[in-house]
């Protein structure tokens, strides 16, 4: 019995490549939805909007305090129950069984990642000098305008490295999607391994593919940092 079947190892790459889009889809959709949600949550907490801010605090605590896998299961098996309840109570006509499993993945991952991101964003906004907002208000801008034009762009520069971190972690977490039979890279790896009855080779291969994707993300974030920190001029610490 060979220790490492190199032919089999190579043969797994085309199969794995076929499902890279699934991994990327989950990552990109969840990341974008999370940033938007996280911004809302962060602002609710910074501006202490009554009622919503306690809800936001509980949400962040729960989403960060429970395992991602549990959240996936709660999403996949729990949402249909809620829909069932609504159907019985209000007579809605919604067939949950036809919703593709990946939608539940989008939901669960956004739920989870947004909580972490909201803390990143909140910290980044608070890191911006109060004077920036005061100057915005003093020329007559609304808080929203000041946020959008002055504070958030600067906060983005602060938060970007952390965003990159989160994105990279998210790529790896997508491997849990197979638990509700969404075939992304990890699921495909299991299928290939079971089919060929050789597991080590395919796991090495899939590890390399994950790594390659994460390296690309690192590079993109570095490029983003350079752009977003233009205004720091010559005095800026160069991103490594």
């Amino acid at each position: 019995m060979k220790l490492f079947d190199f032919q089999f190892f190579l043969s797994t790459f085309p199969e794995l490549a076929r499902v890279i889009p699934v991994t990327l889809k989950i990552t990109i959709v969840a990341m974008l939805a999370s940033v938007v949600t996280a911004l809302a949550v962060a602002l609710v907490r910074i501006y202490r909007i009554p009622g919503l801010r306690q809800l936001a605090a509980v949400y962040v605590s729960f989403a960060r305090g429970t395992p991602m896998l549990v959240q996936i299961y709660l999403s996949y098996y729990g949402i249909p129950l809620v829909v069932q309840f609504l159907r019985d109570k209000y007579g809605w006509n919604l067939d949950v069984s036809q919703i593709p499993a990946i939608v539940f993945i989008y939901f669960a991952f956004t739920f989870n990642v947004a909580a972490y991101l909201s803390e990143t964003i909140r910290a980044a906004i608070l890191a911006i000098d109060k004077g920036q907002m005061e100057a915005s208000l003093s020329v007559g801008m609304s808080s929203l305008q000041g946020l959008r034009r002055i504070v958030l762009p600067q906060a983005l520069a602060v938060a970007l490295p952390s965003f990159g971190n989160t994105a990279i972690a998210l790529v790896k977490d997508t491997s849990l999607a197979f638990m509700i039979s969404v075939v992304e890279m990890m699921g495909e790896a299991k299928i290939l391994g079971a089919r060929g009855l050789r597991f080590f080779e395919v796991y090495v291969a899939v590890a390399l593919v994950y790594w390659a994707i994460c390296i690309i993300i690192e590079r993109l974030v570095a490029l983003g940092e350079k752009r977003v920190r233009r205004f720091e001029g010559l005095s800026a610490v160069r991103p490594s």
Binding site: S136, L137, I150
Partner: peptide, 18 residues
Amino acid sequence: LRRKTTMVFQNYNLFRNK
């Protein structure tokens, strides 16, 4: 009130990203 006034700050408070 803010439309009628502007302010110059001790710490300048220029918009750093502009």
